[in-house]
Amino acid sequence: MHPAFSVLIFTVASGAGYGLLALLIMGHLMGMTQLQDNTVVLTAGSLSLALITGGLLTSTLHLANPKNAWRAFSRFKTSWLSREAVFAILVYPFALTYLLSSWASEELNLLTQLAGILTLILSMMTLFCTSMIYASLKTIRQWNTSLTPLNYLVLGLMSGSLLLVTVQGLVQGSAAQSLQSLALLLVVLGASVKLIYLFWIGKPAGSTINTATGFTQAKVRLLDAGHTADTFLTNEFGYEAGADKLLRLRAAMLVLAFVVPFILMTLTSTVMMLIAALLALAGLLVERWLFFAEARHVVRLFHGDQAT
């Protein structure tokens, strides 16, 4: 699949935003002492909303006919993209209520708790719906797996936890031990989920050129694709990166998104944590790029691929 840059930015930024928001609310409502600070809540909350909003705005860039984008809320019953749009918009009133109510009173009150819990649920729902857009496509076996939503949720929470401990550390001068441990745990979890995914997609499976053409008892080869220049189909689905490039990027992704952030996170310096968070976000951009570049749509079979 062709990795559209707007979608990469969108999923990484909004994933981190929803992860940050969810973890912030969880810690705040569960009474974590360091998170009872107004400044931390408002800074982290605003940062998460900025990431989410920026991501959502970027996502509209890949629409070819954005004047009809408002119609995307209309098929909630069947379309994961529609569900994502609805939940993404629903998060805002509750998140703003939660932040305003936290700003108005330092004490946890019922409004803060109620709005917080709803924001937390809706954030995770939005992130889940985003992942299901990809996971529901039977045409792309590398995406059509429960590992896809797991990846999106865990990596969103992971980047969110790195941002949360960084914001808390920068505002209060020293990072909370518990947030630091949570970030370390989520980095390990994220790396394991990603490694499982990489092993899983390596196994050959799915449709072949034989089932695509209906000739299942003999070898089938493409003689002529019927066009001399690129088409919409070859541009969208024919993306091909060299095997060594993919391997190098996989290594870079694992180092940038997981290994280096883990090492930096073990240090107590908040500056190092900031660097860790930024590196992880860069690593996740590579991860998202690979998620697209390594996904092979079955239309490729009609263009001569033997298997997906």
Binding site: M1, H62, L63, A64, N65, P66, K67, N68, A69, R71, A72, S79, L81, I133, L137, K138, T139, I140, S207, A212, F232, L233, E236, F237, H297, V298, V299, F302
Partner: peptide, 14 residues
């Protein structure tokens, strides 16, 4: 149609 391409992704036949 808003041109999001998702239907073309869902179609196995191009």
């Amino acid at each position: 149609c808003m041109g999001c391409n998702l239907c073309s992704w869902a179609c196995p036949y191009g």
